[in-house]
Design a protein around this nucleic acid. Structure first.
Lengths: 291, 291
DNA sequence: GACTGACGTTGCAAAAATCGCAACGTCGAA
DNA sequence: TTCGACGTTGCGATTTTTGCAACGTCAGTC
C-alpha cells in the first residue's frame, strides 16, 4: 500500500516554493487564501502553518496580509559556501527566457547525471516542463553536453562504457563515438545543441558556466518544442553563450573582499576563447559541485 | 500552563541553522551524531529528520556522511528579491570580526527598531551575545544611529516623541536633543559610537550600508565590552566604515545583468563623501527593507 | 443600510507524524 | 578480539497537524 509519508519538511518547502514563485509576480507575495490554492490545502491549514514561519522570520507578512520569503531564510543561506552563482543567475535567466520566450534551466553535474537547480518559464501554453530538482541524462541533453565540454575523448568513452542513461529520442547518441563527436562539435561551436535526443520533438541549446579557474561549474540551457526552436537554434545558442559568459565573469568577480584595502574589485574581462583551460586539468576528476 | 508548541518549522530551522553554522568549520558539515549534539536531540531523531531533508535537496550528505546545506535551499532563496547584500556581507563581516576580534552584526531597520540579521562572533570568552533575529532600540545603539544617519532633526524629534525604546545604560540619550546631536556627530565622523548606552559596559561602533541610490539599507557594527574597545574606537570605526563602503559599492554593482550586451559591469568607485544624498530625499519615509 | 461573498482565524475530534528508547549491524582503534 | 562510536530501524506513546464548521470582519452591491 502506498504509505504516503508526508514529512513536515515537504509541507514547509511547498509553502516556501510557492512564495518564491510569487516573488516576481504582480503584486508580489501571496495572501493566505492564494497560498492555499497554490499548494492545494485548506486555508485554515495554511493560516496555522504560516504562524510559526512568520514568527521564525522565514516568512514575512506585510500590512496588507501578503506573505513573502523572510530575512531568516537568507540569513541561513548566506552562511553557506559559494552559492553566489545561484544568486546571480536568476536575473540573467529571466532575461534569457523573456527574450527567447522558451524555458531556461540552470543545471549542475551530479555524478553521471544532470541536476536541474533553477528555472524560468516562458509564456507559451506548450513548453518544456519545470525540471527543477530532477535528474536528466548527461549524454543526450544540451545541458549535459555543455557540462561535458572539457572532457577528453577517453573519459567520454569510459563514461559511455560505464553506462550513462540513454535518451528516449530517436537522435540520442547510440555510440561513444557519436557522443564524442557531438561534444567536440559543441565545444567548437561554443554551445551544445540537442534535438530529438532526450525526447522526440524536444530541442535544446546549452552552454557552460565557468568559475575563475575555468572549471565548468554549471550549464544553462534553453529548451522547447522543436517546431518553435529549429529555425533559430543559432540565435538561441548565441544568446545562451552570452548569458553564460556574463555569468562566468560575474561569478569569478567578487573576491571575498578584503575590507581593509581600498582596492576596487572589478569583474574580469571575458575569457579568451581557448584560454579557459589554463591551469586546469580537463581530465581531473571533477567532484560534483555542491551548488 | 506554558503550552510548549514546538512547530515542525522550528525543528527544521534548528537543523538548517546548525548546518549553516558548520559551513565554515573544519571539517565542513556535520555528521548525524554531531548534529544531534548540536541541536540536543537523539541521533535517531536526527537521522529520521534528515532523510526527507536530503530527499528534498535542502540538505546534502557527502559520501563521508557529513551533511551540508543543499542546493534546494538556495534555489528557493535565489528566487526572492534583492538579497544580494546578505550574500555579499558574510565574508566582509568575517574579515572584520577576525581583524578586530569582536562580534560583528549586520542589521536592518524594522519600524522604530533594529533587526539583527547576520552575525560573526569573536574568539573571546566574554563577548557580545549573538543577537540575530532580535530587535534592539534604534536610538541608543551604534547600528541604530548608523541607520538614522540621513534623518533630519525634525524626524528624529518626532520619533523620540513617539517614544522610541530607551536604552538601559547610563549614557543612553535622554532627550531628543541628545539623540540629534549624537546622530549628527556620527554622520560627521562617518561612523556611530555608542558606549554604555544600550547596556552599561557595552561599547559599539557602526556604519551604514547604502544602495546604488545612496539610501541606507543596513548597518554593520562591531561591539564588545567597553574595557576592550574604548581604546580603539577610532580604529574600529575606520575598519567598519571601510567595510560598509566596500559593501555599498559591491551591492550597487551587479546590474541585474543584460545578458545580451557585452558591457562588462564594474563595481563603481567609492562614493564621494557627502555625495551619497544625490537624488535621495533624506526625509522621505523609508519603508523598512524587507531584507 | 442590509446583503453578499471572500477573507483570515479558531475549536474540536480524528488522523498522522514525531519522539524516546532499545536493539542491531558496521567500522576502526586499541 | 574487544570496545566504543556511528547510523539505522521497530515499537508504543506522545505530540502535532488536519479537515470541517463556525465566527467576526470587511468591501462591494443592490
Amino acid at each position: 500500500m502506498p504509505e504516503t509519508h508526508t514529512s513536515a519538511a515537504e509541507k514547509i518547502l511547498a509553502v516556501l516554493d510557492a512564495l518564491a514563485a510569487s516573488a516576481h509576480a504582480e503584486p508580489a507575495g501571496l495572501t493566505v487564501a492564494e497560498l492555499g490554492r497554490a499548494i492545494e490545502r485548506e486555508k485554515s491549514v495554511v493560516s496555522r502553518q504560516l504562524k510559526p514561519l512568520v514568527e521564525l522570520g522565514l516568512v514575512e507578512r506585510d500590512p496588507a496580509g501578503r506573505h513573502r520569503l523572510g530575512w531568516r531564510l537568507f540569513s541561513v543561506a548566506a552562511q553557506a559556501g559559494d552559492q553566489r552563482l545561484l544568486m546571480l543567475a536568476p536575473p540573467v535567466m529571466r532575461k534569457l527566457a523573456r527574450g527567447l520566450d522558451e524555458r531556461v534551466h540552470l543545471s549542475v553535474r551530479r555524478d553521471s547525471s544532470v541536476l536541474t537547480v533553477l528555472t524560468e518559464g516562458s509564456g507559451h501554453a506548450v513548453q518544456t516542463v519545470n525540471w527543477v530538482g530532477r535528474l536528466s541524462p548527461i549524454s543526450c541533453t544540451s545541458s549535459g553536453r555543455a557540462l561535458l565540454f572539457d572532457h577528453r575523448a577517453e573519459e567520454l568513452e569510459g563514461m559511455f562504457a560505464a553506462g550513462v542513461e540513454p535518451g528516449a529520442g530517436p537522435q540520442a547518441p547510440a555510440t561513444a563515438a557519436e557522443l564524442i563527436e557531438r561534444v567536440a562539435a559543441a565545444r567548437e561551436r561554443g554551445y551544445a545543441i540537442a534535438v530529438d535526443e532526450f525526447e522526440d520533438g524536444l530541442a535544446g541549446v546549452g552552454a557552460p558556466v565557468r568559475d575563475a579557474n575555468g572549471r565548468i561549474i554549471a550549464a544553462i540551457n534553453v529548451s522547447g518544442p522543436r517546431y518553435r526552436l529549429h529555425d533559430r537554434l543559432e540565435d538561441a545558442g548565441r544568446h545562451v553563450s552570452q548569458a553564460t559568459a556574463y555569468l562566468s565573469r560575474a561569478f569569478a568577480a567578487p573576491p571575498p573582499a578584503s575590507a581593509s584595502t581600498d582596492r576596487i574589485p572589478v569583474i574580469p574581462p571575458p575569457l579568451q576563447p581557448g584560454s579557459h583551460q589554463q591551469g586546469h586539468q580537463p581530465g581531473a576528476p571533477q567532484p560534483a559541485p555542491s551548488v
